Simulated scan of single mutants.
Amino acid sequence: MTTQEVADKLVGYCRQGQFENAIQDLYGQNIVSLEPKGSPAEKTVGMENVLKKTAQFNEMVEEFHGMEISDPIVADKFFSCTMKMDVTFKGAPRNTMEEICLYKVEGGKIVQEEFFFTPAPQA
């Protein structure tokens, strides 16, 4: 798959809330996932660990109220999009999270993802 095809498929999965399917279909086995300093999971390596990180995030959520993801912007072997989630975490008030997502594609698979957002203060 081309970078554009991978980008379009990822956005489609995310718009349907099918994050685990996206990981299993589009990510390389040695995926590197990066989040900002101060995040609970600053660096996660490997598909199984990224799936676990996704499951842990979902376990923290009391209710998803909505999500928006932009069309991808593609250049060379990279693409980016914005993601906005309206969510209530367990034990917390309703919150809107916004981030910029950057992906690197090699051999038709996502080999790196990096998320840019302001982490919530940790208790």
Rank of each mutant, 00 (worst) to 15 (best):
1 M>S: 10
2 T>F: 07
3 T>V: 03
3 T>I: 02
7 A>D: 00
7 A>K: 00
9 K>T: 05
10 L>V: 08
10 L>P: 02
12 G>E: 11
13 Y>E: 04
15 R>V: 11
16 Q>C: 12
16 Q>P: 08
16 Q>D: 14
16 Q>E: 13
17 G>V: 05
20 E>A: 15
20 E>T: 14
21 N>Y: 13
22 A>L: 08
22 A>M: 12
23 I>F: 03
23 I>Y: 03
24 Q>I: 04
25 D>F: 02
26 L>W: 00
27 Y>T: 00
28 G>R: 01
28 G>E: 00
29 Q>P: 11
31 I>H: 03
33 S>F: 00
33 S>G: 05
33 S>Q: 01
34 L>E: 06
34 L>S: 04
36 P>C: 04
37 K>D: 08
37 K>H: 10
39 S>A: 10
40 P>M: 04
40 P>K: 04
41 A>L: 10
41 A>F: 09
43 K>C: 09
44 T>R: 03
44 T>M: 06
45 V>N: 01
45 V>F: 03
46 G>C: 07
48 E>H: 13
49 N>I: 11
50 V>N: 07
51 L>H: 06
52 K>V: 05
53 K>E: 15
54 T>I: 11
55 A>F: 06
56 Q>V: 07
56 Q>H: 09
59 E>S: 13
61 V>H: 04
62 E>H: 10
66 G>A: 08
67 M>G: 08
70 S>C: 05
71 D>T: 09
71 D>E: 12
72 P>Y: 04
73 I>S: 14
74 V>W: 06
77 K>A: 12
77 K>R: 15
78 F>S: 09
78 F>Q: 09
79 F>L: 07
80 S>T: 15
80 S>G: 15
81 C>W: 12
82 T>K: 10
83 M>E: 07
85 M>V: 14
85 M>P: 11
85 M>A: 14
87 V>S: 02
88 T>Q: 11
89 F>L: 14
90 K>I: 09
91 G>W: 05
92 A>Q: 15
95 N>G: 13
96 T>L: 11
98 E>D: 09
98 E>S: 10
98 E>Y: 08
101 C>H: 06
102 L>I: 13
104 K>T: 10
106 E>H: 06
106 E>G: 03
107 G>H: 08
107 G>P: 07
108 G>T: 04
108 G>M: 05
110 I>G: 02
111 V>A: 01
113 E>Q: 09
113 E>G: 10
115 F>L: 08
116 F>R: 01
117 F>S: 01
117 F>Y: 13
117 F>D: 01
118 T>R: 13
119 P>A: 05
119 P>T: 01
120 A>C: 13
121 P>L: 08
121 P>C: 09
121 P>Y: 07
122 Q>Y: 02
123 A>K: 12
123 A>Q: 12
